[in-house]
C-alpha cells in the first residue's frame, strides 16, 4: 500500500505534513467563515422574508436596500471581491494573509449567496401556517422561530449543504492569493512546480470533504422531514 502510494503520488508522499496542514487550514477556513456566514446569512434571509411585501413586518425601504445589497455583492466575482476587501480585511483581522486574513472576504463572498438560499427556504413555508400561528395569538418572534425556522429545517439543511460546498471552492481561490489551505498547496507546490500528483491528491481530499458534507446534509434533511 505504502509502496503503491509512493509510486502514484511521489511528491505528495514527501510532503505529507504540509498536505495535512493545508487540509486543516481549509477546514478551519470553511468552519469559521461558514459559521459566521450561517448566522449573518440566516438573519439576512429572515429580514428579507419578513420585510417583503405581505411579510410579517412589511417594510419597503429595508427590503429594497437589503435586496439590492445582496445583488450587488453576488454580482462581484470572488477574486475581485478579495482585492476590493483588502483594506477592510486588514482593519478587521489585522492581516490579509493566512486563515485569519481569509475569513472576512470568505464571509462577504458567502453571506449574500447563503441569504438567498435561506430566503428561498423560508419562503417555502406555507403562509397558512403563519396565519394559523397568528390566529393563536403568536407574536412575530414566536412566528419566526417556532414557525418559519422550525418548519424549514429540511430546506435550510439543503441550503447549508450547497453553500458549504461552494464555500470550499472559494477557500481554494482565497488560498491561491495567500490564504493557505489546499488551494494554496495545489497551486504553489503542484502547479508552479509541475508536480501533477499533488494537484490530484488535493482533488481527492476535496472530493472526500464535499462528499461528507453532502451525506450529512442529506441526512439532516431526511430526518427532519416528516
Amino acid at each position: 500500500m505504502q509502496e503503491l502510494l509512493t509510486e502514484l503520488f511521489p511528491y505528495t508522499m514527501k510532503s505529507l505534513p504540509m498536505l495535512w496542514r493545508s487540509t486543516v487550514e481549509t477546514l478551519q477556513m470553511t468552519f469559521w467563515s461558514g459559521g459566521i456566514s450561517f448566522v449573518l446569512g440566516l438573519a439576512l434571509g429572515i429580514l428579507l422574508i419578513v420585510t417583503r411585501r405581505g411579510g410579517l413586518m412589511e417594510n419597503r425601504l429595508v427590503y429594497e436596500v437589503l435586496d439590492k445589497a445582496v445583488n450587488l455583492f453576488r454580482s462581484i466575482p470572488f477574486i475581485i471581491l478579495l482585492f476590493c476587501l483588502l483594506p477592510l480585511t486588514r482593519l478587521i483581522s489585522g492581516t490579509a494573509i493566512g486563515v485569519q486574513g481569509s475569513i472576512v472576504p470568505l464571509v462577504f463572498g458567502t453571506v449574500p449567496f447563503f441569504a438567498r438560499q435561506m430566503e428561498s427556504a423560508l419562503s417555502e413555508v406555507n403562509s397558512g401556517l403563519v396565519e394559523a400561528a397568528q390566529s393563536m395569538g403568536c407574536g412575530r418572534l414566536d412566528i419566526i422561530f417556532r414557525v418559519y425556522l422550525r418548519e424549514s429545517v429540511p430546506s435550510i439543511a439543503r441550503g447549508v449543504t450547497i453553500t458549504l460546498i461552494s464555500l470550499i471552492g472559494l477557500t481554494a481561490m482565497a488560498g491561491a492569493v495567500g490564504a493557505g489551505g489546499l488551494g494554496n498547496f495545489a497551486y504553489v507546490y503542484g502547479q508552479q512546480r509541475s508536480r501533477m500528483d499533488i494537484i490530484y491528491a488535493t482533488v481527492i481530499i476535496l472530493v472526500l470533504i464535499v462528499t461528507v458534507i453532502q451525506v450529512l446534509g442529506a441526512l439532516v434533511a431526511r430526518i427532519s422531514k416528516h
Binding site: G128, L129, E131, A132, M136, G137, V147, E151, H226
Partner: peptide
C-alpha cells in the same frame, strides 16, 4: 390576547408538518 379567546380552523388544516 383576544385571539387566544378565538380559535380558528382552515380548509387546508394548516398543521405544522415538522
Amino acid at each position: 390576547a383576544v385571539r387566544r379567546r378565538i380559535g380558528m380552523i382552515f380548509q387546508q388544516f394548516n398543521l405544522f408538518a415538522s
